[in-house]
Amino acid sequence: MSADSQHEVGERIAARRRARRLTQTGLAAASHVSYATIRSVERGARRPSDGVLEAIAAALEVDATQLRTGYVGTERRVHRALPELSSVIAGYDIPQGPPVRTPDELADATSTAVSWRLGAQYGRIAAGIPDLLRDAIRYVHTACGPEQRNAARMLATAARTADAIAFKYGERDLSARLIDVMRWAADRARDPLVQAATAYVRTEVFFAARAHAVGLAALEQAIEAAPAPSSRPKAAARGTLHMRAAVIAGRDGNVDRADSHLKHARQLGDQVAVEGIYLGTAFGPGSVRIHEVSVAVSLGRDHLDRALRVATEWKPPAGLSAERRSGFYIELARAQEWAGLQADAFESLKAARAVAPQHTREHPWAREVIGNLRRFHRSDAESLSHFAHWIGAV
């Protein structure tokens, strides 16, 4: 169920087209959709079919959920890809011939897939990740010497990108197997920064199992093994582990250790100074601020003032990854709902959806908050119901 009118969809497509400096004729040519259809859709006179929307989204290099909020084709595409992903990694440790793509082509495709993950464009990931992962596995087995280490780094990154859709769409067993592929690749990369990134992602297994104490112990071991923060990438690698450790310590109810890890993350964020992407993970002062909210929410209702205080002083800038910004607003919504600020919580959820629709739609806390708001906050019942139907909370 879409909460968007035809005019809103048309305006969104037109804005994206102009941002890419395309004319309507150019978009028609790039999408293989007739000029008359493009013109009619942008004017709001016609609602695009799923096929037309997908074609336009591909030409604009965005996920279709960025154009129409209620679009469900992304879920279909992801669920179609998951069995193939499982098949691709079934024999990841067994040589199966050379990759189809060249190393440079693989590197470009992997970099593009990472940008999709950070932008929460899960449908685009699903369309290409099985073939990318297959080639990356084959490249590790056929590369020799130092080249194999580069191939292993690429495989770890590709497996992490695949895990983004497996984990977010509830395929916990597949997610754990993809993390095993990451760990296997990290061992072959013999790169402590890849090892740190793998330890960061592995925490998903502990979150899913609610094994917070052992997850914290694993992260603290990874921090000990991480290189000294003598450069920006090394500081970022250690800083991301401290961020993650702070959150899982919060889930474990350990206030002192959560605060200690958050303090270290803040210091390393200041050392890095500039927000950036380090081996596929966003890190910098902004990411640390977002994790301050995450830690406060993880610690529970008695600490919600900490989350609300951050939100009154700071908002995530557009330069941060869409997934991070969306996560900030979802966690803030949970704190606002706990504090009885129902209208503010709903505004935060709408902000999360505007930034990264699919990330918001698949987030269990977003569903929980909207469900509570719909039951107990009646002043905006129709809009709440639209949102709840969109997110699947009814």
Rank of each mutant, 00 (worst) to 15 (best):
M1F: 15
A3W: 08
R18E: 13
R18A: 12
A29V: 08
A30H: 06
V33S: 04
S34N: 01
S40F: 00
A45F: 02
P48S: 03
P48W: 06
V52N: 04
I56A: 05
L60I: 12
E61A: 13
R68H: 12
V72F: 11
S86M: 04
D93C: 15
P99A: 11
R101V: 01
D104Q: 11
L106E: 02
A113H: 08
V114T: 13
L118T: 03
L118M: 12
A120S: 08
Q121K: 14
A126G: 02
A127P: 05
P130L: 08
D135H: 08
D135Q: 09
M154H: 12
L155D: 01
A156L: 08
R160K: 12
R160S: 13
A162R: 00
D163N: 15
I165V: 15
I165P: 03
A166Q: 06
S175A: 15
R183I: 15
W184H: 14
W184K: 09
A189Q: 14
A209S: 12
A211T: 01
A217V: 13
A228H: 10
S230N: 06
S230R: 14
P233R: 00
K234V: 11
A236M: 02
T240D: 08
T240N: 10
L241M: 02
A246I: 05
A246N: 00
G253H: 09
V255M: 10
R257S: 10
S260E: 11
H264I: 11
A273F: 07
V274L: 13
E275H: 12
G276R: 00
P285G: 10
V293Q: 01
S294D: 06
S298E: 10
L299K: 09
G300H: 11
G300R: 09
D302Q: 12
A307C: 11
A311V: 06
T312P: 02
K315A: 15
P316G: 01
I330Y: 00
R334D: 05
Q336T: 11
W338L: 07
Q342T: 13
Q358F: 08
H363K: 07
E382F: 14
E382I: 14
S385F: 15
I391W: 07
